[in-house]
Amino acid sequence: MLLLGLKSRCRLKVLDVTGLQGDDTDRGPEWMSLWSCTVALAKACVEVSKHHHECLKRDSKRHKGPSGASVVAPQPLGVEVRADLFVNSTSFNILRDALQTTGPLRLKCRDFHAEELPVASIVGLLELLEPTGVRRVDLRFNNLGLTGLCAVLPHLARFTGLLSLKLPYSNVNVRRVATEAGLRCLATQLGRLLCLKELNLGSSRLSGKLRQLLG
């Protein structure tokens, strides 16, 4: 049970579960995929938060001060749950709820993976992530195109420790459609990722424009 943050005697501050998930099919059935682990953590955060707030309400009704006002004992600091997160359309809602919720468990992302999500959903989740600690962002099969990338990349600049950005299958084809303004925007936003060490634009067709984008 991830209810450690509810007990005042608990001293746990950080629970690090990064690196415990994987999609290796050779592993046994007890091995959780990154997607299923993300869902389990998100559900735990939401459920613990609900239970926490219900307890606070009950306590406020039971304990009254001299003036009749409710007196609630100070609550312990929550537990920071560090995790790698994987989200797609089926898990978007629960992860969004978990990142928005306030309670004893607080999700903090290290590596963020998103597949087959619209631009607005990707941006919404990126804005909910705490900026410190994010080191990798992997956005694949999202069909962003040049316009979508220009909409998403400004929201990555807040991750000052971002080391790796993977954008495979983003459907960027400068031979088919491209504007100089769009390419300049993309180059400018990439240039703001000052700690970036790895960039993956696999399956994009950028022939003749790499110098402009990476210069």
Rank of each mutant, 00 (worst) to 15 (best):
N88G: 14
R96F: 04
H113M: 08
D84E: 04
L99I: 04
G78S: 07
L117H: 04
L85D: 03
D111F: 08
Q100L: 14
V72L: 15
C109Y: 01
L105Q: 06
L77E: 15
F86G: 04
K108H: 13
L85R: 00
L107K: 08
V119C: 15
L85H: 00
S121W: 03
C109K: 01
F86W: 13
L77Q: 14
G103M: 10
E80M: 12
G124A: 11
T90M: 11
E116F: 00
V87T: 10
Q75S: 12
G103L: 06
K108Y: 03
F112I: 00
T101G: 00
V81L: 15
L105W: 07
A69I: 05
A98N: 04
D97N: 08
S89Y: 04
P74G: 09
V87W: 05
L95Q: 04
V123E: 01
L77R: 15
A98P: 08
A73I: 10
I122V: 12
T90H: 13
Q75V: 12
V87Y: 05
R110P: 00
V81K: 00
T90F: 11
V71F: 12
P74I: 07
P104E: 05
L105H: 03
A69T: 11
A83S: 13
A73K: 15
F112V: 02
V81F: 01
A73M: 12
C109D: 06
I122W: 06
Q75A: 13
E80R: 13
A120S: 14
N93K: 13
E80C: 14
V79Q: 05
S70A: 15
V79D: 05
S91F: 04
L117A: 09
D84P: 07
E80F: 03
E115R: 11
L117F: 05
L105P: 01
P76K: 11
L85M: 12
G78W: 10
V79F: 06
V72C: 12
L77G: 14
T101V: 15
G124M: 01
V79G: 03
P104G: 07
I122C: 06
G103S: 11
R110F: 01
L107N: 10
T102S: 15
N93F: 02
A98G: 03
S91Q: 05
R106P: 01
V71M: 13
I94R: 02
L105D: 08
F86D: 06
A98F: 06
L85A: 01
P74N: 07
F86P: 01
L99K: 04
L85P: 04
L117Q: 03
D97A: 14
S89F: 05
I122E: 06
T102M: 11
R106W: 02
L105M: 09
D97S: 11
V123L: 01
E80P: 00
K108E: 09
V72P: 07
R110C: 08
C109G: 02
L99F: 07
P74L: 05
A73C: 10
L117W: 02
V71T: 15
R106Q: 14
L99H: 06
A83N: 09
L85F: 08
K108G: 00
R110Q: 08
